[in-house]
Amino acid sequence: MRGKKEQEFEALWQRHGPGVRARLVNQRLLDPAIDVDDIEQEVRIRLWRVLQTETQVTHAASYLRTVVNSALIDAVRRAQARESSRRGGEFNEQMHTATNNEGLADPVQGQQRMQELSAAAESALEAMSANRRRAVSLRLHGLAVNEIGALCGWSSAKARNLVYRGLEQLRSELGKRGIDLES
C-alpha cells in the first residue's frame, strides 16, 4: 500500500508535472543545453525531498516555479562550465587576432593590450551612474530590456531609458579611450 507522502507526491505531480514539462520544453527552444528529461527528474527529486521534510506544500505552483528556475540555472551553469575553457580560448584567440590587426604580433604585447582594453572598459563604466552601469552591463551580457527591468525592480520605461542613455554614454566614454563599440 502506498504511503500518504507518495499519494501526495503523485497528486501534486499529476497536477503540475505537465506544466513543468511544458515550461522546460519551452526553455529548451532557447538553450539546447537544457536536457528536459534530466531537469524534470531533478525537479521531481527536489519536490519529493521537500515533501519528506514538510507536512504540507503550500502554493505548490509557486514552489515548483522556484524549483524549476533553480534547476534550470544549475543546468545552464553546468553547461557553461563545460564550455568555459573552450570559450575562453576562443575569446583570447579572437582578441589576440584583433590586437594583431593593430600591429601587435608579440603575444606579450597582445596580452598587455587586452589588459589595457579591459581597464579602459572598466573606467568607461565607472564614469557612469550606478543604475546606468547596471543596466548597460546586463544589456551587454544579453538580457532584454524588460528582463533588466524585472530583475532590478524598474518599470519597462525606466529600464529602456537607462539602457539606451547608458549605451550612448558608454559609446562616448569608450570613444574617449580609443575604443569604438560596434553597433
Partner: peptide, 13 residues
C-alpha cells in the same frame, strides 16, 4: 558575470 546573467535570463524567460 555574463554566465550568471545568461543563466538568470533563461529562468526569466
Amino acid at each position: 558575470s555574463p554566465d550568471s546573467a545568461r543563466a538568470v535570463a533563461i529562468a526569466l524567460e
